[in-house]
Design a protein around this nucleic acid. Sequence first.
DNA 1: TGAAATGTTGGGGCG
DNA 2: ACGCCCCAACATTTC
Length: 473
Amino acid sequence: MQPATLVWYRRDLRVLDHEALTHACAQGTPVFALYVDETNPSHGRAMGGATRWWLHHSLDALRSDLSKLNIKLILKRGATAEMVGQTATEVGATTVHAMAVHEPAEAEQVVRVEERLRRDGRTLAIAGGNLLHPPGTIRNKQGGGYKVFTPYWKFWRTFNPSAPLPVPSPVAVSSTECASDNLDAWHLLPSKPDWASGLRETWRPGADGARDLLNTFIQGTLGDYQDARDYPAETGTTRLSAHLHFGEISPRQVWHAVRDAAARETDMKIENDSWSIIRQLCWRDFNHDLLSRHPDMATRNIDTRFDAFPWQSEPDALRRWQKGETGYPIVDAGMRELWTTGWMHNRVRMIVASFLVKHLLIHWRAGEEWFWDTLVDADVANNTANWQWVAGCGADAAPYFRIFNPILQGEKFDPNGDYVRKWVPERADLSNKLIHKPTPADAGLFEENYPTAMVEHGFARKRALDAFASLKR
DNA sequence: TGAAATGTTGGGGCG
DNA sequence: ACGCCCCAACATTTC
């Protein structure tokens, strides 16, 4: 058999700036690419519905990009280690190249894959990854991990990432055939019912979609980032989160594109805006660093004092939150944006999360699980770190008494009510003065087809503070 | 990457 | 002219 090289794809669905692919292409042999879908993984967590939808289209895009390099993308469903081992044998690869994925479950998986390959005398070569500074590389003076974001960020930003890798050249065509599953047969897309129309209208998964978003951001939005990022009615953010999660674009590509754009301007405002957006890349690294030091943080409070918190189990209240029927317009707008598009603006994520945890006293895990299923950018490290941050039990958490007032937040960050009008159309005719106010029980001037507030803010605030006080005793 | 309660200040109305 | 009160407006503290 003609020798070949295999690239095992996971969360790095791109061909540009891809260490493993570059190394594989440098071998001078034909290259195969492999993606393994393990529906019920023995390690880690099954993907949610929105990320499965994204994955389908991302794999489709990757297949197209790889074919231009004469590389076939092989799809296999089954136990990961076995599938990687089998495929390496089928294509005749002595070395399998892969990118690092910095999650505890993936690390366990890699050990299994290595063992399986070693059995056949093959090796696994891990390079690169999906972060700028992986867990363990940003350490304080005592050599330990940072617990607080700001000092982590100050140290993090002193390092400049190396330049993105050059564009790979096409490889030799292979004479070997290797069987692949049919992507459609994986049924990653929803059918009965097809709830993905809003996702199709909003996103273009794949590296091309990512590149277009990045270019649009740099050409238009970057110079306004610090002012616009908090206003959910505007496209003030990059909207790259899902593309980054799946590795369709590398954080290194983003870092350099943003810094290059700032370097072309003399304006200090652009300089500050560029660091402000790069800071968001730092959050990804920080969250993954946290996950590496708290491998069970997806399910356990980092601050164990919160293990005694009197969470309420209220399935009906949870359902109203999920459906966007809480009666608080900014909360409902966010939850509906999430359900329709698979994404929610960051400012609104904080508001809806605070509402679930503090106004309804429902465990952050219930919210995290809903996000996991509905977000196209659902990511273990980012999702759980941010939920714990809001709930107050995280490493560098918001103090529990910091309770968002959903009315004030709406008035402050959606002053013209545009965001609410878009996602809660039954309120569209209300004035700017009234649009963020929940419907009081006795008011006749409000629309009747919009639910009244599930809980009065002042009452809920006191109740949350009392619950928090009970922890300290 | 808050909000509410409480404290302080200073201008203007008024006797 | 002066003191008193009211109450924004802003600052500080507390949750």
